[in-house]
Each structure stands twice: as C-alpha cells, then as structure tokens.
Amino acid sequence: MDDSDAARVFEALDTTWPAAEVVTRHGWHLRRGAGGGKRVSAASRVAPDAPIAPAGAQMRAWGQPLLFMLRGAEAMLDRDLATAGYAEVDPTLLMSAPLPFAVVEGKMHAIFADLPVARMAEVWAAGGIGPARLSVMARVTAPKSYLLVRQGDRITGLGFVACAGSVAMLHAVEVPAEARRQGAGRAVTLAAAEWARRQGAAQLALAVTRANMPARALYDGLGFREVGHYHYRMIDPAAPAS
C-alpha cells in the first residue's frame, strides 16, 4: 500500500460522495451530512494536534451524533477517542483496481443514466439507500452516472459512479435480495469500470466494510486490492449517559 494512492482515493471519496457542507475549522474537516450517512457526517482531522472538543461542539450545533472518521494510521487520536468513550464502528477498506479491466461482461444489460429514474429510487430505498443518500449523489458536481443492471424487465443491480480526476469511485451498490448470487453485483462493478474507462480514469475505487465478506470476495475476484482503510469512532446516542 502506498500513502499517495490512499490519499488520492480519500480525496476521490470526498469528491464523489460529498457532504452537504464541509467546514474546515479548528484543524478539522467538519462535515454536515444532512442525513446522508456516516461518511458525509464524520469529522476528519487535518491538523496533527487538533483538539477533539471544538469538533464535537460543531457537530452538536448541527444536531449530529459525535462521529469521527479515522483514516489509516491515526493511532494517537484513535486511542484518545477510545479513552473518551467513543466506540469503534464500521472498519472499512478502500479498494482499487487499475483500468481497463481485462474482462467485460456478459449476460446482464447495463444502463447508464444521468438521473435516477423513480424505479431506481424505490429499489435503493428498499435497500436502505433513501432520499438523503440520493441527495448526496445529486450534489456531486464531478462527472457521474447512475448505473442500472437489468435482466429482462427486472432491476437486478444498481450503483452510482463518479470520477475525480484519474480516480473513479463506485458507490451505493444495491442488489435486491431476490437477485443475489446471480452475478448482478459483478455486472454493476463491470459497468462502472466501463463507464470509468470511457471517462479516462486510471483506476476504479470503492469502499467496502471489512465485515462484508461476500462483497470483498466479489471485488477481490475482480482484481481490486486494498489501498487504504478507515473506521469511525462515535458516541452511541442510544447508550446511557455516564
């Protein structure tokens, strides 16, 4: 793993899955997520010695849970947050594969859309990717595409891909339960690779939680390799206050 590779992919992560607002203050990137999930709501440290408290104050002011994203080796900060009662959440891998892919698919037909059609929004919503995450996609100003893979008139897979310079990133992969284990996730990934290749990207990257073994197997089988990792530390809002 090369630090500059990881930095490029982290930068692409911010561009292709953007927060509603990023305020850089007190040595932190503070993200206002507008309900779009952890990745767009977490604070990440930019100044090495930035204290935790002011970042927490801003998140509280936004009405967001206290949530920090720890990118790669931030062992000291990680320990400080753990000591302060922050629990580790969602260890995630950043994976990347060089373009173009040697394999191009196949039996499932992919459609590249500029905007999500209503049926896509329904399928995404059923998989937990609701309106706030569609807003994240809508906010992306970089080149982007909404991917739909179908078999006959059935949606078997969805994804969202956007391009930040030489790095394209795949997000919001959703395969409806009834379409799993039939190669739809693979077809979505290959469609994203094809779109990214046409955009002139040199690599396709994505984030996958460490615990999602079927997805990790899929991506590994397609030639993706780990280039970085992150996890969150958060105060569980449901936990009793001490």
Partner: peptide
C-alpha cells in the same frame, strides 16, 4: 476467515 477472501473471490469470479 478473512484470509479466505482470495479463494472466495476466485470462486466468485469463475
């Protein structure tokens, strides 16, 4: 179990 990713990936891809 983590170390099975390459084998599972190969089976998934083929």
């Amino acid at each position: 179990i983590d170390a099975l990713v390459p084998l599972a990936g190969m089976l998934d891809a083929n």
